[in-house]
Amino acid sequence: MEDWGIAIIKVVFIWVWTLLCATVMTWVERRGAGMIQDRLGPNRAGPFGLFQPLADGIKLFTKEDIVPANARKILFSLGPILFAIPAFSAYAVIPFGDKIVVGGKEILLQVADVNVGFLYVVAIGSMAVYGIVVGGWGSNNKYSILGGLRSTAQMISYEVPWGLALLAAVLVYGTFSLRQIALAQQGTFLGFLPNWGIFKQPLGFILFIVAAYAEANRVPFDLPEAESEIVAGYHTEYGSMRLGLYLFGEYVNLYTLSALMVTFYFGAWHLPYLDMSKFLGPISYGIASFIVFFLKVAFFLWLFVWVRWTVPRFRYDQLMNLGWKSLIPLALLNLFITALCIQITA
C-alpha cells in the first residue's frame, strides 16, 4: 500500500495535467484548424495566442449564468456536472508512465492500478451520455432534445463495438488491469514487429478508433451538436461556465480516449525495439516513460483535430447503419477470430 501523500500527489498531478492538456487542446484545435484552413487562428493573447484558453476561461467564468425560464432547473444544472465528472474520473486507472524510483521507493505512474481497470473505464465511459441527455432534456428546447436523443442513440450504439473491440484486446493480453496490458507490450512480436496491440489487433484498433470518435462526439460523428442542423444540439441553451464544463469535458474525454488508444494499441510508454529501462537511471526512466506516453497521446489528440477539419458529418440513419450493420458484426468477428487464435495457440 502506498503512502497517502504520494497517492494525493499523483491524483493532483494527473488532474492538473489533464486540465492543462484539455486547456491547451482548445488552443491546438483552433490553431490547428487555422493551419489546415490556410488562416491564422487566435494569435493575439500571449505568444502564438497561447493565453487564448485562459482568456476564454475567464470569459466563461465571468459571464452571466442564465437559466431559461421554462427549463427544468435541477436537470439543467445537473447536466454539465454529470458530463464533467465521468470525464475527469475515467483517467484514474489509466497509466501515464511506467514507474519512478525516488528515495528507494517505487512509485507507479498511475493513480490506481485496479485489477478491473478495463471494466472501470468502460463503465465510466458510458456515464457521459447521461450528462448530455439530462442537459438536453432539461433545457426544454426542441433542438436540445434532438441533440440529446441523437447522442443517446449514438453513444449507446457505439459503446457496443467500442467495448467489443477492447474485449478482444483483453483476450490477447489476458488481463483486465491496464498496467498489465501496458507491460505486456514490451519487446517484439513475430521477431520483427514491436509487441504492440495494433499489430495483434489491427481490426480491433480500427473499430476502437471509429467508435472512440463517436463516443467523443467528434466529426464525423458530431451529430449531437451539429451546428448547421440543430444549432448547438444539447448545449444550445447553455452559457457561461455550464457551457464551459461541456466543452471542457469533451477535451478531457479526448485525452482519456487517446490515452486508452495508446495503452491498448500503441505500446503505452514503450519505444519500439528499445528498452529504455536498461540504459536510463530510475528517475530519468520514469520521466522518459511519461514523456514517451504523452507524445503518443499527443499524436492521437492531433489526429482528432486533423480528422475534424477534414471530413463532413454523417446523417443520423447512416450513423446507425454504420454502427449496427458494420461495426458490431466486425467487432464480433474480430472477437471470434481472436478467441479462436488464442484457443489454437494456447
Binding site: 484552413q37 488562416r39 448547421s228 442542423e229 477539419w309 477534414t310 471530413v311 463532413p312
Partner: peptide, 16 residues
Amino acid sequence: LGVDLGAFTPYFYLFI
C-alpha cells in the same frame, strides 16, 4: 454546402 454538411475546410480554400 460543405459547412452545412460539417466539412469546414474547403469553405476556406474556396473563400480565399
